[in-house]
Design a protein around this nucleic acid. Structure first.
Lengths: 354, 354
DNA sequence: CTGAAAGCGCTTACAG
DNA sequence: CTGAAAGCGCTTACAG
């Protein structure tokens, strides 16, 4: 045997040898141990009803399985049945607390339906989102809830054409899709409502701290609509990404150029928190000198001093709802129905910061 | 990446054809399309070198693969090669920001080595940790970094005997294990150091707010050692779980019974944050009336008002290190070496809250 | 250079 | 009731 010298994973000697050395028992081992057929073993261990295996055989098989510590090989089972009993969450950034909350809700519902949950963090970059797509297309999961910033609908459709159920979270009312469900909140309306609330509080010069990716555009749209409607001049400042550090940087830059507004509306809570720390560093009091509002209502928002005014989407409920949609599609009677769009409510949470 | 076109030929109508079109293309389809063997297809698509396939054949195969939008079926490949090129992180609670940081670091290193990262949230409960074990034993991943609260060493060993590489994060110096690596910080020493720091600041009545699970016990041990050593009387209050809500509840209960201490040392930052909100609600000023210290140094710690004094483990670095260990075991020359224990440093981060 | 064939561990018709 | 057999999509020795 000539060993091909390749990058192929299987040619790594150590792991392959080790795997073989400590082989896990298979149905064949149980068949050999009991003197019955592998078919019978499969039938018994899967509890296929009505059972065509005698009680005696069944008992011997179960005992042998127990004794050998048999665990089914999912790769093999999945290859055969094309079902994995696993769902995935694909999110841009686990260190943004809004996503763990979403996943928490998802997992609760997936668990109740007997599905495992896998989580994939894309970092919100085009490259890693493509890796997530590739991973999806390899058939690891039966269904997925995905938050993508850079993936086109057609790409997602291609990646999941193997039959993977999809719920996509959108930042605006999406076009109807035959192929998968979509959940969205009206980000523009939410941002507009928050801006209007700030205006009602007497603010005239309100800057928006936003970001070009993800839901940033829609939230800017809502802000602009409210400002225009009130005859006020919009001022939008762009941060690199939706992180606290980027928010602090952008706010500091704005302050250095002589910011004279009385309020800042940030496109998410992390940006708002960054802005708050920059404001404090520049000696501005919140909310007396500058009011601050955010978006997401992450758990931390109410713990800040002052507590952050923000927009809540109830992520926990959205996650739960998404998992339930997937399970219905996979196990329910409406497996084949066309995709639907589901709008979820938002809520303004007025706290001390504005 | 080019978007593959639909392979559904308009000239072949009918349900069968559509069902076929929906199927993901396989190597067999490429073989059929090119008139070459499936073996040749596999050889070319895996880039096996030195190649035994002619340039002409190679080109035709690659073109057909592109045209059909071929994506390898991982289930099949894994079944054959027993390798998945995927690593897992198993953690107790994604909504505790310390774990996203850990995962972030892990993912960075895994990514660099060409591995995908899957995340499994156990909720810290015995039931879900068992599900994680079961999932592990099904061979989904080549390696795993795990934080378990309730899983015995033997159980983990059994679940991964298929050859899955393991790095376990421990809360104390672990016993050496032949089977897997362990990373730990000396939680007792860290808690002791923090308690000593509080004592040096003049505090005499220091309560510890802790939790029975996970690293709670070790941190209590360190606290007690420091208190005893200084001739002070330890007072430990137990919260249900390591969450902010539990911290607030436990602190409020303590305050109701007439707490007279001048400092509270919480076993993690979330408990500390909960305690802070309870203290504020009861009209106590931090740190003037009661000083507060935590453990973990989650990103939020420095954003609080007052900023939280805490213990840092540098999760990002730990995660990165863990992934590198796994990759070395899987791809490196030292695949078979016995497991080692690696101690990582901690650091006291003194801020305003104490 | 190329393809026929065995086999990874499993499910599921099908024939005795 | 029971087992032989086909097949899921792939990798890889082996024979031409």
């Amino acid at each position: 045997m000539k060993k091909p010298r390749s990058e192929s994973p299987a040619s790594v000697p150590g792991a392959a040898a080790r795997a073989k050395a400590r082989r896990r028992p298979t149905q064949r081992d149980i068949a050999l141990a009991t003197g019955l057929s592998q078919t019978a073993v499969s039938l018994v261990l899967n509890g296929v009803e009505p059972s065509s295996v005698s009680d005696d055989a069944r008992q011997r098989i179960q005992q042998a399985a127990e004794k050998l510590g048999y665990v089914p090989n999912r790769m093999a089972r999945n290859l055969q049945s094309a079902r994995t009993r696993t769902l995935a969450c694909i999110v841009p950034d686990l260190t943004n607390p809004t996503y763990p909350a979403l996943i928490r809700g998802f997992q609760t519902a997936a668990d109740a339906a007997g599905y495992d949950t896998m989580i994939f963090d894309t970092d919100g970059t085009p490259e890693r989102e493509q890796r997530a797509l590739q991973w999806l297309s390899q058939g690891h999961v039966d269904g997925v809830m995905a938050v993508f910033f850079h993936v086109a609908e057609a790409e997602l459709k291609t990646a999941t054409r193997g039959g993977t159920a999809v719920v996509r979270l959108e930042s605006q009312r999406p076009r109807a899709s035959r192929d998968f469900d979509k959940i969205y909140i009206n980000n523009a309306a939410a941002a507009q409502a928050m801006t209007q609330a700030l205006i009602r509080k007497g603010h005239q010069r309100i800057a928006m701290l936003s970001c070009a990716i993800g839901p940033g555009a829609e939230r800017q749209r809502g802000y602009q609509a409210a400002m225009n409607e009130a005859g006020l001049k919009p001022q939008i400042v762009r941060a690199e990404d939706f992180t606290q550090a980027d928010g602090a940087r952008a706010m500091a830059a704005l302050l250095k150029t002589g910011f004279e507004g009385s309020a800042v509306f940030a496109a998410n809570d992390l940006l708002a928190i960054g802005a708050m720390s920059a404001l404090v560093a520049f000696g501005r009091r919140i909310p007396d000198d500058v009011a601050v509002a955010g978006f997401d209502d992450i758990p931390l928002a109410q713990l800040l001093q002052p507590a952050l005014t923000t927009v809540s989407r109830n992520e926990l409920a959205i996650g739960r709802f998404a998992a339930e949609l997937l399970v219905q599609r996979l196990d329910g009677p409406d497996a084949g129905r066309p995709g639907q769009g589901f709008e979820r409510p938002f809520e303004l949470v007025m706290r001390e910061s504005a």
